[in-house]
Design a protein around this nucleic acid. Structure first.
Lengths: 197, 197
DNA sequence: TAGGCCATGTAACCGGTTACATGATTAG
DNA sequence: CTAATCATGTAACCGGTTACATGGCCTA
């Protein structure tokens, strides 16, 4: 999925300027598809107009720079629909924090605690952000996404908080000594059904 | 986080060839950091050796092509540690399925059902894969990752299955009252619709 | 006998980011 | 007075992918 399709998807829901599309794709509800910056959005929009999939209207504003408001047309919706039809690629989840966790022996417990707290703070922020998004969003067919995201994020956060001590303790190489082996996999049962919705 | 650091992280845990690193980073336990292909791994490994962070040993095999087994040294571990020390960037989660969900009105319920089943099948596969990984992995400080991933993935899957009907029903435009305009995402009202067909 | 697995590597390409240029307005 | 927000756009760069070249072995 590329910036072009992202633009079509956003313009399908509402008219927008390049500036707004960037905000939506990095901070807004569209942040879970692809994130794009100005350098990719503006050319994509120009190409889209060139190809006749969107149209553009200039809007003069008082005290603000003029804006180019794009709207999608039927041809654009058709391409979007076609892009959506092909089977979705698998989700991707990437986490630098997990990378730190995997190399826990290399860093000392203080640094791990710091990384952990930094990370949970970020997740907490995202949960909150999602709640604000949900509140601001009117009813619509795509709205289950918010509930889904919120539920998953909450679960994520909850698991981390429940296991903070264990994670921080995994840092440093001292644990590796034969004195005391951590319970590891057999002891840590994945929480089967914790409802957080 | 780039391929270079990925290679160091893997080599920190065990010796490996470029071929193995690719497998680990796309299918294995390292798939949640960055995924890399041959075209990026081999040059990275060569550079790493050039910089003196890893060493390489040729291994002749019978009936198979010879392999270059890389191992990390102290200088390499030092760079890895340094890379790990800086605060982790926020996790990213990208999903084409969610994109389809957000544009549900555009596709008919059958296609949505197909996409849903395709997606849940993928997630189910990943859950299973994670279980196999856990079983195959020996005890170690980074092992909580498996439990974490399993828990989150399970939650994800459970939510989807609990809401299948609702999600499939969100497809197609006929479902909801004709009152609804396209959802305005930031409380910003969409202006008049310009048709340039 | 076709295709997949092992195994290494290169070159062309490309989709994206970063940094820059420009400039008015408002909030701290 | 400074920084941020609004707003558009370009050019250089870069990290990564795709496709290719090579070749023996094993399985269906």
């Amino acid at each position: 999925m590329n910036v072009r399709t992202l633009c079509l998807a956003i313009l399908h829901h509402r008219e927008a300027t390049g500036y707004e599309i960037r905000k939506l794709s990095t901070e807004g509800a569209y942040a879970y598809f692809v994130d794009a910056s100005f350098g990719s959005i503006y050319p994509a929009l120009a190409k889209l107009e060139d190809d006749g999939l969107v149209s553009c209207r200039m809007e003069q504003q008082v005290g603000k720079p003029p804006r180019k408001v794009y709207s999608i047309n039927e041809k654009g919706r058709a391409e979007l629909r076609a892009n959506l039809q092909e089977p979705p690629k698998r989700d991707t989840y990437k986490s630098e924090f997990l990378m730190i966790g995997m190399c826990a022996e290399l860093i000392d417990p203080e640094d791990m605690a710091r990384a952990f707290d930094h990370h949970t703070e970020q997740v907490r922020g995202e949960v909150q952000h999602m709640e604000e998004l949900s509140a601001a969003m009117p009813d619509g067919p795509g709205n289950w996404m918010q509930a889904f995201g919120h539920s998953c994020l909450n679960h994520h956060l909850q698991w981390l908080m429940d296991n903070r001590d264990m994670i921080v303790a995994s840092a440093g190489s001292s644990k590796l000594d034969a004195t005391q082996l951590p319970p590891a996999l057999d002891g840590v049962q994945p929480a089967e059904t914790d409802e957080v919705a």
